[in-house]
Design a protein around this nucleic acid. Structure first.
Lengths: 141, 141
DNA sequence: ACACAATTGCAACTGAGTTGCACATTTACT
DNA sequence: AGTAAATGTGCAACTCAGTTGCAATTGTGT
């Protein structure tokens, strides 16, 4: 188990009770979580909604979590264990986006994914994201 | 040149002046357009903002255009020429998302893209979208 | 030309996410 | 441990893309 207190301080963030709580929730989740999802999981702990937004943005800016644009116009936030190894790089990701419940699940990116270099001429590619749209296990009736 | 009047009626939509104007704008654009982008290009023609939203949603439901979730929380709408050939299928797409100006450019999807079947076990994949994040030609200083 | 269904415009609303500001907490330093 | 500066927190008010309800208008098949 990683020491979240030290972890946050190494990232240049103060290790507050709120942040440790929020980070724990993100680390335990299978899928990316929305602001509302996290609020729900915080049921007993009260954290102001603005604080939660600001915390998630801080985490995202420090590359602790990923902020993913979702099809329901809500941001989804996800912690990636494998990023602990290479925290400095913007790592490529694969996301499964459920058409029914809008949940987003993260997978490590296929490493040997080759790009069509012709069409992307002139474009400077930084990160590759493979988005799979369909039905998650729960939503397949 | 395709007859937009007939095209729209074949899709089960009434061929109104508004719709033809909006569709023309979408067909002429290199990149996916937001509601605001289209409003700007409509400068002389006044179309109510709600009508524009409803038109874009109709087009999207009839698979005439694609509605893409963007990182700036605005929907982007794109017409794909190649979809005219296979209008019934949900076709796979590649999108280049500019980190600076948030514009989205569409490319045909690499056909031989193979998936990591292990991780996606239990997930029913319908459409694949390859998202490339980086800097578009205009934003590279 | 007519009638009906689909489309349009307006006003008011929704809801995720943000901003400003005063107060509280962490942390680095002595 | 004690303290000051920096950082984080909570509240209220705000922003802005997108939606809803409804009455008036327009397109289309007959």
């Amino acid at each position: 188990m990683i020491n979240l207190d030290v972890f946050l301080r190494n990232k240049g963030l103060k290790a507050t009770k709120n942040r440790i709580e929020i980070l724990s929730i993100l680390m335990e989740s299978e899928s990316a979580l929305s602001h509302a999802d996290i609020t729900e999981k915080l049921n007993e702990t009260y954290i102001d909604k603005v604080t939660l937004y600001r915390t998630l943005n801080s985490f995202s800016e420090k590359n602790i979590i990923h902020k993913v644009a979702s099809e329901d116009r809500n941001w989804k936030y996800a912690f990636h264990l494998e990023d602990l190894d290479q925290p400095e790089t913007d790592k490529d990701h694969a996301h499964f986006v459920c058409n029914s419940c809008d949940r987003i699940f993260c997978f490590p990116m296929e490493p040997n994914l080759k790009l069509h270099s012709t069409q992307s001429a002139g474009f400077l590619v930084n990160t590759k994201e493979l988005r799979l749209h369909g039905l998650c296990p729960t939503c397949q009736v």
